[in-house]
Simulated assay, not measured.
Amino acid sequence: MRFLISLLFVFTVAISEASASVSSALDKVTIGENFIIHSEIIGEDRPISVYIPKGVNTGDSLYVIYLLDSEHHFHTVTGIVQSLVDYEQIPKTMVVGIQTTNRPRDYLPKINGEPQTKFQTFVKSKWPDSGQDKFLKFLNDELFPYIDKNYTTYPHRTIIGHSNGGTLALSALFERPELFNNYLAISANGWWSYDEIIQNSKKLIESNRPKQKLFISVAGEGSQFYTGTLELLTNMERNKPVNLDWKFEHYPERTHMSGILPAITSGLEYLYADVNFKITPELAKYANISVVKSYYSDLSKQFGFTVSAPVDIYVEFAEQQQMNLREEEALKTLEQFVRDYPEHSYAHMKLAQGYAKVKKFNQSYEGFVQALNLAKQQKKETNIIDALQDMVNQAQTKL
């Protein structure tokens, strides 16, 4: 994590100093793009930032993270997302950052009737017009359609909110369940009265709600941040909605702001965990690739769109089958890998290596040649092409 913080610092320095002290012959380091969307619903311009991880191919469909308060958290979150995508801990996911213009107005629930807590009394006296309805409508009616029109996206959305932004994420879970699939609520302000907590938790058992996941955390703030979250989770446990899974983490040694770092990493890994098939020793010893195909078929039905098995799942499964001396089953796994990713040079290379293990040298040679040709057509890096050429040459000596 210290390395990640250092890396983000380097990026920030590179961006700020590029125009002043770096030769014009060098490219500037930039992270994402910024643009303005005018909201007719809110009646103002809304600054938006978008980040697509490096390594995403043109036409790849992306899961979408909507990040609140992006003017504070954009670099932190995009750095973590890039690392998690690189190591296939989460699928290819873009970040849409929404900058703040009026936090109380946009993030805090509207107070109906008399205030029930000291915090509600304070908010109603200071911001009598607060209420999230217009902001949530802006997301659904204006921002979501813009992103889906201009980027290749899956109909799968995650919201990340910190502090009052975390309160908005929880409110969306209770009041507008159709907006998001995943919720990452970090140190949400203790807002509701106890009666309201009970009412909100009961809303989660409605049968028409979609399948959703929640990661909720608090740091060492104490007070309503901690007790309010525990009261909410206790009542959710009592009602136990079948269509919502959640995980709670407490970071007592962290501050209100530093608690963001572990929550983002752990939260995203948890929220997207279903996308990564878990290969147990029993499956490696007895099962075949059909269990993986069945898993992603069921997940696709649950999500409402086709979810493909990640590349590394095929490789890991085949390697574990090989460790159990199941070479033929490993070959079937790698053959399925090629069928599912026919334009992926890595798939052909792994299958060629599998053929070599069982001394099917003609098929191994053909596989390496196919991997090399694809790499050349797709203009892969020189070192990749050189490595594949060496593999072809070595395979040819076995013929």
Rank of each mutant, 00 (worst) to 15 (best):
H344I: 07
T333G: 04
D340K: 04
K350Y: 13
F317E: 05
A347S: 15
M349L: 14
Y341D: 03
P342N: 10
Y341G: 01
L334M: 06
V338Y: 02
Q336L: 11
F317Y: 12
A352V: 13
P342D: 08
V311K: 08
E335C: 07
A347C: 04
I313V: 07
H344V: 05
S345Q: 14
Q321D: 07
M349R: 14
A318M: 01
K332M: 11
Q336P: 00
K332H: 01
E328S: 06
Y314R: 03
E329K: 07
A347I: 13
L334K: 01
P342I: 08
Y341T: 13
M323P: 00
A352K: 09
Y314S: 01
K350H: 13
D312W: 03
Y346F: 06
R326G: 12
T333M: 07
N324T: 06
E329Q: 13
S345F: 15
V338T: 05
L334A: 12
E327R: 07
E329M: 03
F317R: 00
A330Q: 03
R339N: 13
N324L: 09
A318V: 04
V338H: 04
L325S: 12
A330C: 00
Y346G: 00
K332I: 09
A347V: 10
L325Y: 15
E328T: 14
Y346H: 13
M349G: 01
E327F: 15
S345L: 11
Y341N: 10
D312M: 05
L351V: 05
L351W: 13
L325I: 02
L331H: 00
V315L: 10
L325Q: 14
M349A: 07
R326E: 11
E327V: 05
R339P: 00
A352T: 10
E343F: 14
S345G: 06
T333Q: 00
E335F: 04
E327S: 10
E316Q: 14
D340F: 03
F337E: 08
A318P: 08
E343W: 02
V315A: 04
A318L: 05
N324G: 03
V311Q: 04
A352D: 09
L334E: 02
Q336Y: 00
M349K: 15
T333D: 10
R339V: 12
A347K: 11
E343I: 13
Q322L: 11
H344F: 11
Q322W: 08
T333F: 09
E327L: 09
M323V: 14
Y341P: 02
D312K: 15
Y314N: 01
D340Y: 12
E335Y: 10
R326V: 11
Q320Y: 10
Q336R: 02
S345P: 14
L325W: 12
M349N: 14
N324W: 05
V338N: 09
E329D: 15
Q321S: 02
L351I: 12
L334G: 02
E319K: 13
A352W: 06
R339T: 15
V338P: 05
Y341F: 15
Q320E: 15
R339Q: 11
P342F: 11
I313C: 09
S345Y: 15
A330L: 04
R326D: 09
Q353S: 14
L331K: 12
P342M: 10
H344T: 07
H344G: 03
E335A: 10
